[in-house]
Design a binder for these strands. Structure first.
Lengths: 342, 342
DNA sequence: AAAATCGCTGTAAACGTTTACGGCGTGTGG
DNA sequence: CCACACGCCGTAAACGTTTACAGCGATTTT
C-alpha cells in the first residue's frame, strides 16, 4: 500500500520530462525512442494513472450516479441491471445512491452534484417537489429523470405509461367477468401512487364500472404493507373478486393474506401485480403483472445520459416506454388450493 | 450548468484569502467576523466543495467500491442492500462494479485500485486465481474479500460455511427418507462450486449414502442452466427423489423442469436451493433453501472495510457466517399438483 | 547561405483544494 | 519602553495530471 509511482517518477527514470510522459501515456505523437523509454519505465514501476488528478485537470470523472429510491425494490434493481452494462461499455463507473424514498435524500443527491464527483445523474424520484424542480433547473451536471415530471420541465425524461398499464389490467379482469375489482395502492403523494390511483378510476369508468372508494386501500409499496392493506380490504368487502395491486410486492402480500383467509386465487379473487419483477414469475401462484418496462427504462435513461454527455446542448428528450400485460396463473391459472407457503 | 464558484470566488467576494475560506469551511478556529463574511459569501454564491480537488489534496475519495460477480444474482443484491446503508452512514459513496463472473474483469478492478478513485474495495470473486492473490498482495487500497481465500492470505475475509450448509440440507433430506439425492452444481472451478460439490460428497458419506457420480450434474448458476442440468439428470436417473441445488436460481430451473415432467414437488422429488433469496419465499412451491447469510456477509464486509480504513494497520481478520436451513414447501410442503406457471 | 518549416521536447501554468510557515497587530510582563 | 507571546491571517507550496507555448536541432525552401 506504499505510495505508487507518478509521472514524475517515470520521467526521472526514463530521463525525459513529465510532459513527454503524459504525451506517451495519452498516445499523442512522440518519437519512437521516447515512447519506448517511457513505456519501459512505466512497466517496470507498475504505474497506474491517478484518476483523481486526471479528473481535476480534465473536469471529467468518468463516473455517473444512479439514485434509486430503494435498493430493495426489484423494479429499481431491474433498471440497475440494464444501466450498469451500458455505462460500463462507455467507460463510466457507476456510483449508487439509495435515497430510501425520502425527498430530503433526493435533494441531497442533487445538491451533491455540485461536488462534481460525477459527470451525470440518473434519478428515479418517488415524489417531485418544488425543490426538486428548482434544483434540477440549476443542477451542475446533466440529469435524467426516470418517472414523470411536470410538463415543460427542461430535463431528459424517461416515463412509464402506468395509466395504459392499469387500463390493460382492468380490461383483462373485466373480460374475465370480475366486477368488484379492488385497488391496493401506495401513497398518493408519490408520483406512481397518484398516477396509478387516477388510472384505476379512469379504467373502471371506461369499462362501465362505478368507482367505489370502499374498494380502494392505501398502503405503501412493500409486501408487509400489502398484507395489512389487503386484510383491511377483505374485512370491508368480503366478496371482492379481483385486486389490482400497485406493485408486485403488494401483490405478494395480497397472495399471503388471501391464502391465509382461505380464498382461492384466481377462482375467488384474481390478483394483478405491477412491474413484472422476477418475483412475479416465481411466486405461488405465479403472478399476472403489468410490466412497465423497468429494464427498458433503465437502458433508455443510461443511453439518454450518455448522449447528453457527448452532445451537451441538445433539446431535452422524452422517452415513453409502453406497458405490457403479462398474464400468469393469478388471473388465468388453473386450480390451486389455498395453502401455506412456510 | 455554468462553472460553479470556487474558494477563490468566495475569497474575493468576502475580501479574505483562500486560506481563510478553507479554514472556515473546515471549521478551524477563525475570528467570528471572518466566519460571518465567508459564510455569507458562500451562501450567496451557492458554493459547493469540489470533491475531486479535495480528494487530490487529502488523498481520500470517500468512495468505496463493491465488485459483485453478477448484478442479476439476488444473493449479491442481498449483500448490496446491507453494504449500501453501512457505507452511507459512514459518509462513503458506493461505486458498483459488475464483473460478470469473468476473472479478467475482477483483475481489472483490482488493478484499477491503483487509479485511487476509491479508498477501499469489497469483492466477491467467483474464482481466486494466482493472479488474484498476487494483485491482492500488492493492492494499493484495502480490500475485503467475500468468499474463501487460501489459508494464510493476508486479507480481510468474510466467509460463508457452505460445507455445513450443504450438510444441513442433506441431513434434512435424509431424515425425510430420501435416498437418491442428486446434486446440481455450478462450475467446479469456482469457489462456491468446488466447496459445495465437495460438501455434498462428504455429507452423503456422513449419513451413510454412497456417492454416485451419475447423480451429479454440473451446469452454471443460472435458471436456464439449471433447467438444462436437471433435464439431463432426470433422463439419466428417472427415479431420483431429491435435488440439492447449488443456488436458488438453479432450483427454480429444477422446479420448472420437474413440473413439465409431471413430477410432484415434494412428493416425488424434494428440492433444496441455496442462498435463501427472495425468490425462494415467493416461488411455487415455495423453496426450502440453505441461507448462507448473504445479508450478514455483506454487512460484515462493509464493517471490516470501514474498520480497516480507520485503523490501517491491524491484523487481517476472518469472519465466518453460519448457515441456516429454511424449510419450506419444496421439501416439507403439502400436496401441490404439477401444473403450468405461465 | 539565410530563412522558413517541421518534429519533438521541456518549462511552466493550471485544475481547486489543504496546510506549513511566517508576518502582523495587539496585549502582557519585565 | 522593549521583549515576548498569542491569535489571526495571507503567501505559497503541494497533491498528480494535462496542455499552451516556446525552444531547439534538423530539414526544406528561396
Amino acid at each position: 500500500m506504499a505510495d505508487g509511482p507518478t509521472i514524475t517518477t517515470i520521467a526521472e527514470r526514463a530521463g525525459v520530462s513529465i510532459a513527454s510522459v503524459s504525451r506517451v501515456l495519452n498516445g499523442l505523437p512522440t518519437r519512437q525512442e521516447t515512447v519506448r523509454k517511457v513505456m519501459a519505465a512505466a512497466d517496470e514501476l507498475g504505474y497506474v494513472r491517478n484518476a483523481v488528478a486526471r479528473s481535476l485537470k480534465s473536469r471529467r470523472t468518468h463516473q455517473v450516479a444512479f439514485a434509486m429510491a430503494d435498493v430493495g425494490n426489484p423494479a429499481y434493481l431491474a433498471m440497475l441491471r440494464e444501466i450498469q452494462p451500458v455505462l460500463k461499455a462507455a467507460g463510466y463507473r457507476l456510483v449508487l445512491h439509495s435515497t430510501d424514498a425520502v425527498a430530503a435524500d433526493e435533494i441531497d443527491v442533487l445538491h451533491s452534484l455540485g461536488e462534481r464527483y460525477v459527470d451525470g445523474l440518473i434519478m428515479s424520484p418517488l415524489r417531485v417537489t418544488e425543490t426538486h424542480l428548482r434544483m434540477l433547473a440549476t443542477a451542475r451536471a446533466p440529469v435524467v429523470i426516470i418517472g414523470s415530471v411536470p410538463e415543460g420541465t427542461r430535463v431528459d425524461n424517461v416515463r412509464a405509461d402506468s395509466r395504459t398499464g392499469v387500463r390493460l389490467a382492468i380490461d383483462h379482469l373485466y373480460a374475465l367477468g370480475r366486477r368488484r375489482i379492488g385497488m391496493v395502492n401506495g401513497p398518493l403523494d408519490t408520483v406512481p401512487g397518484a398516477a396509478r390511483g387516477a388510472a384505476y378510476r379512469e379504467a373502471l369508468e371506461a369499462v362501465g364500472l362505478r368507482y367505489d372508494e370502499r374498494l380502494v386501500e392505501i398502503g405503501d409499496f412493500y409486501r408487509e404493507e400489502g398484507r395489512r392493506a389487503v386484510a383491511a380490504l377483505l374485512r370491508r368487502v368480503p366478496d371482492i373478486d379481483a385486486l389490482m395491486c400497485a406493485n408486485d410486492l403488494i401483490a405478494l402480500g395480497a397472495l399471503d393474506v388471501l391464502r391465509a383467509a382461505g380464498k382461492r386465487v384466481p377462482q375467488d379473487v384474481a390478483v394483478v401485480g405491477m412491474d413484472d419483477t422476477d418475483l412475479a414469475a416465481a411466486s405461488w401462484p405465479s403472478l399476472t403483472s403489468v410490466s412497465l418496462g423497468s429494464a427498458e427504462r433503465g437502458k433508455a435513461a443510461a443511453e439518454l445520459l450518455l448522449d447528453r454527455l457527448r452532445h451537451g446542448d441538445r433539446e431535452p428528450r422524452l422517452v415513453t416506454v409502453l406497458p405490457r400485460l403479462v398474464v400468469r396463473a393469478s388471473t388465468a391459472g388453473e386450480a390451486s388450493e389455498g395453502g401455506r407457503s412456510s
